[in-house]
Computed example of a mutant assay.
Amino acid sequence: MCASYGLDPRFTDAELLAEADADVIEGLRNWAEQNAGETLRPTGKNLRNLNPLVVPDGDAVTLEPAWWGYLVNGEPAKFPSINTRSERLQERPGGLKTRAIVPSTGWFEMQKPARLWHEFALDNQALFGMAAVTQRGRTPDGEWITCYSIVMAPAADHLKEFHDRMPVLIPPGMSQEWLTGPPSRELIDEAILASGELAERITVSARP
């Protein structure tokens, strides 16, 4: 599953949205620079790490600070919630009611039993999007905020030696449909199929 991911301000290009949105791209670059390209971690009970999320805004899109993982009764859920299996959404498409795209330049997994971290990124180091489902949650200080869970599917064949799961990647041509299309089995099926276009371009590098 996706243990952590990063957003490096040095990304060369953006393969994120169907239509170029300069404000979104600039906002992401500024956020990444302020956070020094830091790897993101799930937010703990006593932490407050809000991350940029691409969400629908009428006929356009916007960036919204969001909490990775679900909040229940003012604290992080006691069940695993930073990732959601694509199979679960195929069986229960009602979980697709609200969706977002997680901007990233790479995600990280630990290969066992060697306990060696690896980074998964596009071959041209471009910014890309990972599928997410969202819901509202209340923070420990009482504020209502968007929470998100990254959608995970079986890994592409060339990545399975490192990890058996990977995020569902949303290519630019499917960004609007993923964000605004009706929640259905067909939508998640199409997203998984489209993910293969980008997955074939993912390269892996060991991390210290």
Rank of each mutant, 00 (worst) to 15 (best):
M130R: 08
L71C: 08
T62C: 10
W107A: 08
V55K: 05
K112Y: 06
G129D: 11
I25A: 12
P76D: 10
A66Y: 11
G74N: 03
W107D: 13
P113Y: 01
T84R: 07
L96V: 12
V102L: 10
I82S: 13
A126R: 13
Y70W: 11
L127Q: 08
A66K: 04
G27H: 03
T84F: 02
N51Y: 15
R99D: 02
A114G: 03
S86D: 07
G58C: 06
N83K: 10
A22W: 06
L122R: 12
V72T: 09
R115P: 00
P76L: 07
W67F: 08
F108V: 01
R115A: 12
K78W: 00
G37M: 02
Y70D: 05
A126C: 04
I25H: 10
E91Q: 13
R41F: 14
D57A: 14
R85D: 04
V55A: 00
G94W: 04
L28P: 08
V72E: 13
K112E: 12
M130F: 06
F79L: 11
K45D: 03
K97V: 02
D23S: 04
K78N: 03
Q90L: 15
K112M: 06
V61Y: 00
K45I: 05
W68D: 14
P93S: 06
N124D: 14
H118D: 00
W107H: 07
L71T: 02
G27W: 03
D59V: 06
L89F: 12
G95Q: 10
Q90W: 05
S86E: 13
A32M: 06
A22I: 15
L89R: 09
W107P: 05
E38H: 10
M130H: 02
P103K: 02
G95E: 08
N73M: 08
V72G: 01
R92N: 14
D23A: 11
L96I: 13
R48L: 13
E109R: 09
K112I: 10
V102R: 07
A114H: 04
W31H: 10
Q90S: 09
A77E: 02
S81R: 05
W107G: 06
M130W: 02
E87I: 05
I101S: 09
G94E: 11
S104E: 00
D23H: 08
